[in-house]
Amino acid sequence: MPHRNSIKTLLIVDDSRVSRMMIRTFVLAKYPQWIIIEAASGNEALEIVDRDTPNYCTMDINMPGIIGTDAAEQILAKYPGIRVAIFSSNIQQSHQTRAAALGARFVAKPVTENSVAQALEFFESNP
């Protein structure tokens, strides 16, 4: 675990406060020193990314306003270094294909220790 001790910034984008709380809890359980920022919509996420440039981002798809996959596309076009995990309960192939095309990791909701671990594994893997 080479990155275990380094401080990273994670942006959690989800319109559900409960989902954000769960992701935050599972991440902090493993990496207590990480800095967590939350956004409740894709538009808010775009602003935060410009301001804070996080290392990682978890992105819900179904949100009011700009949808998650579109927000991820804009973020990755501007900051290709950010690693994005797309969380969705909708496991239809079209969503998974789109995530893969963007270079993001698709993770099936609900938010559980296991699904968050999948996202973390992707964040910490070598590019």
């Binding site: 559900s16 406060r17 409960v18 989902s19 179904n62 309960s89 909708n90 239809q92 192939q93 079209s94």
Partner: peptide
Amino acid sequence: SELQLDALTEIFNIGAGRAASSLS
């Protein structure tokens, strides 16, 4: 409460996502 509603909405959204996958 707002948090209870949020939790319920999330539960049902996950349900909706699963239903959409089955329907597709």
